[in-house]
């Protein structure tokens, strides 16, 4: 029989091994993407300025033609534009839902809105993309203008996709408010509405901000649903109804047709590295927001 002490040790070391594994996976992704992502600057000799600030894209162009052109600005700007616009649509709705669920109608909130939000989370992104192509794009083309494939279509699809994130994280944060601050406020004769807007929402602000950053991070990283509806034209996103491109969609579309070790492939890894880098910035933001919260309480 295994002695008690030994089974304890085995348990501890097995679970520790699992933890080490998760570190290994994360580190290998970060290292590999960083290694591949920097090749464009170190091996192919492209300048940072060229990558970030120019808009001409033709990585296959030979040096004789003046290439390779690896201006990633349209993709970066496209990702920023579509994510921020989606947030603009989604944040008021999502926070509204959260206030509804946590403050206004807790009964309905639990019985109906909770499952609604969970179902929204469950709808796969390709299905959003498919509905985007078959309903949203023709609608925009016929009733609003342009070709349908547009920044607007991408932002609407993304807005629906990030809505549950904003709603559920904000709700949790509102619900975590201690009950006595509400009662205190109401006891002072403040109306329910003033209580919600002046007391409850500000108290839950770090959580709501976290929700917004999380949603933004999800919008940035979403690939297929967006790629299906934005038209993928390589240009700066200057018009709501014009087609545009994003960082994830250029990777989705071009990775399979480029060959590892060439400039056209390297630059895609650089864009992937940028995506990774941006996701770390979001993590840092969330940490900063929440450090403020723990200090406050």
């Amino acid at each position: 029989m295994v002695s008690v002490d030994v089974s304890n040790k085995i348990g501890k070391y097995t679970t520790f091994a699992c933890a080490i594994l998760i570190i290994t996976i994360t580190m290998s992704i970060i290292l590999l993407i960083t290694y591949k992502g920097l090749a464009i600057f170190t091996r192919d000799g492209v300048s940072l300025k060229n990558f970030f600030l120019t808009t001409k894209w033709n990585p296959d162009a030979t040096p004789a033609e003046g290439g390779p052109f690896v201006g990633a600005a349209p993709f970066i700007a496209g990702s920023v534009a579509v994510s921020l616009l989606a947030l603009l649509f989604s944040a008021p709705l999502g926070i509204g839902i959260a206030i509804f669920m946590a403050e206004i109608s807790t009964g309905w909130g639990c019985k109906i809105m909770q499952p609604v939000i969970e179902l929204f989370v469950g709808i796969p992104s390709v299905v959003y993309g498919w509905i985007g192509i078959s309903v949203l794009v023709p609608f925009i083309r016929n009733h609003i203008g342009g070709m349908g494939f547009s920044l607007l279509a991408g932002a609407i699809v993304l807005a629906v996709m990030i809505l549950p994130t904003i709603a559920s994280v904000s709700t949790d944060s509102l619900r975590a408010n201690p009950a006595d601050i509400r009662e205190g406020s109401l006891a002072l004769g403040v109306t329910r509405w003033q209580t919600i807007l002046m007391v409850m929402v500000p108290a839950a602000m770090p959580g709501i901000l976290t929700a917004i950053v999380l949603a933004l991070s999800r919008a940035f990283g979403e690939a297929l649903a967006v790629q299906m509806v934005i038209g993928n034209a390589i240009r700066m996103p200057t018009s709501l109804l014009g087609p545009m491109h994003t960082m994830t969609s250029i990777i989705t579309m071009e990775m399979s047709d480029t060959v590892m070790g060439t400039v056209s492939n390297d630059v895609l890894w650089t864009i992937a590295f940028m995506l990774l880098f941006i996701s770390f910035i979001f993590i840092l933001l969330i940490r900063t927001i929440n450090r403020g919260r723990t200090a406050m309480r």
Binding site: T55, A233, I234, H245
Partner: peptide, 18 residues
């Protein structure tokens, strides 16, 4: 060289046709 940015880009045959 095609002009950049005037064109929608579709991934493949089926998407182009549609």
């Amino acid at each position: 060289e095609e002009a950049q940015g005037i064109a929608l880009t579709q991934d493949s045959t089926g998407a182009v046709a549609k």
